[in-house]
Design a protein around this nucleic acid. Structure first.
Lengths: 241, 241
DNA sequence: GCTAGGAGTTGACATTTATCAAGTGGATGC
DNA sequence: GCATCCACTTGATAAATGTCAACTCCTAGC
């Protein structure tokens, strides 16, 4: 145990350890298995704009973002699109890890980021031993699955203007519900997340002005909550995420 | 055991039972737990065009399609889109069941269908007891998750023409790889699955003609495999599903 | 055989979205 | 303080996609 403990904490501060342990994914599992998971894990700091993962690569590590932010994106035929933004503290690329299948998305840091890397092999081994862990993974995967389904509904059922309006309402709710709040990403990334071009996003913001949306740089003010909600028609089966 | 066995087979023929048992999801679990699952389950035949599930409903049953076919679709603000097609033998709405959360999609039979219904409550209970079952659910959910991610990439990175071209190549592969094969759904449903209108699908088929696609009703012939693949640029990280 | 209905197609047109090119404006670095 | 860079914006235009209406064609039902 002494040795394990030594290895575990090698380069991994207690604060990181407890951040990870507190994640829903790891909170219920046995201590021994948690130690086992971290045996060959390590934490690393990355500068901004570093590509951590390229889609198609074998999934060698389960990643846990401890601080900073990570963009998950995909490419095809010279085009690229942002699929999601990872914010601390959470894991990413869990599905590839448990299936031992290639990553479907690439990942790059958006800012200076601190990331824990757990060997996928160990995740799969512990997953076979620890039922609590297996159950937590089920919960996590089901959550992720439902998130992607909601995103698909957003994409297929709404115009880009409607997607933007609902995005703003979700962001407002997520940041505390105040009338004024701040975009959490560059507008061009936001455009890509919403499935549109930067130019179109610019125009979309203007088109939302009559519905009570004031844009000043990254700062958004909802001047008429009712009008915006009337236009956006948010729906829990799409927007609760 | 006698009693259980009696209950289990009540209205559920052995062929159905073994079809279900053979599913990856149930194949490794303990017999006792399998019996437990089926205790309050039943099988029902549905006519075509019956709405089995409405999005937003509580997820009372895990559904297993034994024969026929089921359309999963979603609506918002008077619009509707097909999300996926379920073909036998497979389960659907697993994520809602394990999360005990409302369905995100509605489901309707496309043809006469035979469906087993397992109380979600039982699924969650057995899932807590049977590690093998929990593990199988992880595999299933990860698979589903990756499927939806691929679909999102398809939607965001490709034009409707490219989506159709790749759909045809996937269908061709799925049906055995012959030059000629048959569409497995109405064209209007196909259009909705691909995120376009029927009218647009009609024109898209015409636009693919120069690339070696011959359409005769529901029958498709790929007259120039190379040209079509050159245009479609299929990619395993999007199209292997 | 005839009719009615519905899926599919087609054409004309509108809307949405992307592309390209030329700005603006603010932040950074020397 | 000034030049440079880069995100963002704006306008003009093109391409993709949706809408509406009319039409064809097949089939189910009588």
């Amino acid at each position: 145990m002494r040795v394990n403990s030594q290895l575990v904490t090698q380069g991994m501060p207690d604060s990181d350890l407890s951040d990870i342990r507190d994640l829903h994914l790891f909170s219920a599992m046995e201590d021994e298995h948690f130690q086992r998971l971290l045996r060959a894990s390590y934490v690393q700091n990355f500068p901004p704009q570093i590509e951590l993962i390229s889609e198609g690569d074998p999934s060698d590590f389960l990643h846990i973002l401890l601080s900073g932010s990570v963009d998950l994106f995909s490419s095809w035929n010279g085009r690229e699109t942002s699929m999601a933004t990872v914010r601390p503290v959470s894991t990413f690329i869990l599905a590839a890890t448990v299936k031992d299948a290639p990553y479907l998305m690439s990942a790059r840091t958006m800012e200076k980021s601190r990331i824990a890397l757990i060997p996928s092999q160990d995740v799969r081994e512990v997953f076979d031993k620890d039922s609590q862990f297996a159950r937590a993974i089920v919960g996590e995967l089901a959550q992720c699955y439902r998130g992607v389904i909601k995103n698909t509904k957003d994409l297929k059922l709404r115009t880009s203007l409607e997607r933007l309006a609902n995005y703003l309402l979700r962001l407002q709710a997520r940041t505390g519900g105040a009338q004024t709040f701040t975009l959490d990403a560059e507008k061009r990334r936001l455009a890509s997340v919403l499935g549109m071009t930067s130019e179109n996003l610019s125009r979309a913001f203007k088109s939302l002005q009559p519905y009570g949306v004031l844009v000043q740089g990254r700062q958004i003010t909802i001047t008429n909550q009712q009008d915006l909600e009337g236009f956006a028609k948010p729906n829990p089966l799409i927007d609760n995420r």
